[in-house]
Simulated assay, not measured.
Amino acid sequence: MSKRLNISKSTISIVLNGHGDEKRVSKDTQETIIKFAEENNYRANQLARGLSRGKSDMIGLVIPNISDSFYARIARRIETKARLSGYNVIFSSTGESKERESELIESMLDRQVDGLIIASTQQNEEDILRLKKSNFPFVLIDRRYPDIETNFVGVDNVGGVAMAVEQLVKMGRKRIGFITLKPGLEAIHERLVGYQQTMKKFELEVKDGFVHELNYETFDEQMPAVFEIMLNSSNDIDGIVFATHFLTASGLREMKRRKVLVPNEVAIVSFGQMSAFDLVDPPITSIAQPVEDLGGRAVDILLENLKDGITAYKQEMLDSSIEVRKSCGA
């Protein structure tokens, strides 16, 4: 690799072991090394790391649902980046169950993982506090406990939804609805706040039938009733922001059933993406979350803790971007 890239072995070792920023290796050089390593299936030599340290060279990843494309992409990034630094990743899904999350954390600790990355149910303060008290290295992603100081990497949910509403306003829409989940997760609450603040900013009315909070377990069954209310003459919604990509997919099915013309009758924007959004007609405007950066930064912070100990907690909020397509009338 050193000869192929014309980069010193020491620099390559620094980058592959997750210390590129610390050692001030340029971003371009780091990306060149990581890209080459991924393309050539390079693995750091775990034996050279030394079993005498009493380490397992394993990281545990706890997420709500591995079949969800958002978390699947995060898991892939975490697995790739951790592997390049000589760590294997074991992961499991909680199914949004507090009890299951607690069981998985305990199981991974029993397997002597070196650290944890957790997208929590936000109902498990006891285990999070226990990990913190024991000084065990872990990073929360996407979801955090506002009253507990921990490592955290998340997304600016308020700003992301603000971009979605602003895009619809830009396209001349004034009766903009919001379809979301029932409160429980901080991220979901923040997205509702983003909607409310932006509607107020543009002096747009939010009537009783404009906002709908659905159950995670039954949102598909609830969607027909939601559109019955949104599309009636008293509301006559002309734009909708969906708080998640899976709510968008469900809403699209219902709109197709009702023969609602997008964007002529109702323009839509999705918070979050699915690969299918590029293929449907019209393609769906969406708020793109920085999945690669989210997973990558979580690994970076965890590796720093594994190397140097927990000297201070890092909390990073990453910006989203908007991918404008025809569903919003563009």
Rank of each mutant, 00 (worst) to 15 (best):
V113C: 05
S97A: 12
D127H: 07
D142C: 13
I105S: 00
F138C: 08
T94G: 05
I148F: 02
R111A: 15
I148D: 00
V113A: 02
Y145R: 10
L129S: 13
S102V: 12
S92G: 08
F152C: 08
S120I: 07
G95N: 04
R111H: 13
I117N: 05
F152V: 12
K98P: 02
R143E: 05
E149C: 11
I118N: 00
V153A: 12
D127M: 11
T94V: 01
F138V: 12
I105F: 01
E101R: 09
Q122K: 12
S102G: 06
E126K: 14
D127L: 04
I105N: 00
E126I: 13
L129R: 15
F91H: 09
E106R: 12
L109A: 08
I148G: 08
G115D: 02
R143A: 03
R100P: 00
E106W: 03
S134I: 02
F152G: 07
S134N: 12
Y145V: 05
E126A: 14
T150H: 13
D142G: 01
L140Y: 08
R130G: 10
G115W: 00
N135T: 01
L140D: 12
L131T: 11
I128T: 06
S102F: 00
R144P: 00
E99G: 07
R111G: 03
S120K: 10
L140M: 13
F91P: 02
N151G: 11
A119F: 01
G115Q: 06
I105Y: 01
F91I: 10
R144E: 10
L129H: 04
E126Y: 11
G95H: 07
N124Y: 03
K133W: 03
G95T: 06
I128E: 08
S120R: 03
R100E: 13
F138Y: 07
M108F: 14
V139C: 13
M108E: 01
F136C: 10
L129A: 13
D114R: 11
P146I: 06
R130T: 10
G115N: 01
K133M: 05
P137G: 07
I148K: 08
R111Y: 04
Q112Y: 15
N151W: 09
R130Y: 08
N151V: 10
E99R: 15
S93M: 04
N135H: 13
F91S: 14
Y145T: 12
D147P: 01
E106M: 06
K98D: 07
V113D: 09
S107N: 13
R130M: 11
D127F: 04
T121N: 06
S120D: 02
R111F: 05
E125K: 15
E103H: 06
T94D: 01
N124M: 10
D147L: 15
Q123E: 14
I117F: 03
S97K: 04
